[in-house]
């Protein structure tokens, strides 16, 4: 077998791909969050629609977005392969288990599946609509006419069930990263007393901050903006 294929079909190789794509997705979350926070501005959607236009027309961003889609796909596929192999490694379980590890770390597969379901519906609701549907138009201050994604989002966030599900999924992301962030560095072999305590603290703060910040947006819209 070719060394390259062999590396990424082995357990460490697969985990390396998980770590690289997972940590890349963490940076994407930050960018996405900055964009979403524009929804909280009471400017009728100017800032958010401007951001949406920038994200879908800037050539550099467009290139990175393909890397992003590939990463999500690769992360999910390798997650599945790893989870299947890991299950196979213990065909018969224990009657009593008292595992000395964090709940998040043992449930990355379930948490990831929730996140994946969220991404799929999220893409359908906003990404596909923006790209393929006729939406009401919005005129930006510079005169450009764009699809009014702001209005779409505001409409979606009118539904209490939608908002509740959204918040639950943000919880799942939070727990996924509670373990995932520091785990990614460990997989890459980055464990040293100089910086590992910093990575661990950053991971905890990051996971809590990201999930709360994303969740606050639909909650604010639902309770205070309509």
């Amino acid at each position: 077998m070719n060394w390259f294929v062999k590396t990424f079909s082995g357990s460490i190789g697969r985990k390396l791909l998980m770590a690289l794509t997972g940590l890349f997705l963490c940076t994407f979350l930050v960018i996405h969050l900055i964009g979403n926070l524009q929804l909280l501005k009471t400017d009728g959607g100017e800032a958010f629609n401007h951001y949406a236009k920038f994200m879908t027309s800037n050539p550099l961003i467009k290139t990175v977005s393909y890397l992003l889609y590939t990463s999500i796909l690769a992360h999910a596929v390798f997650a599945l392969l790893l989870t299947i192999a890991n299950r196979k490694a213990r065909p018969q379980g224990y009657t009593v288990v008292n595992n000395q590890s964090s709940w998040s770390s043992r449930n990355m597969g379930i948490l990831g599946t929730i996140v994946l379901a969220f991404i799929v519906f999220h893409m359908k609701d906003f990404w596909a609509e923006y790209h393929f549907e006729d939406l009401p138009m919005y005129t930006l201050q510079d005169g450009t006419v764009v699809k009014d994604l702001y209005l779409e989002v505001m409409n979606a966030f009118k539904s209490g069930i939608y908002v509740a599900l959204y918040v639950v999924c943000m919880g799942a992301i939070g727990f996924h990263l509670w373990h995932g962030f520091e785990s990614g560095f460990q997989t890459l072999g980055l464990n040293h007393k100089k910086y590992t305590p910093f990575i661990k603290t950053t991971g905890k703060v990051f996971s809590v901050a990201i999930s709360i910040a994303f969740a606050i947006i639909p909650l604010t819209v639902y309770f205070f903006r309509q």
Binding site: R14, N86, N99, S102, R106
Partner: peptide, 11 residues
């Protein structure tokens, strides 16, 4: 040998 991968759980 069929051992699983490391999920870094620390158990």
């Amino acid at each position: 040998e069929g051992f699983g991968a490391c999920s870094n759980t620390g158990a």
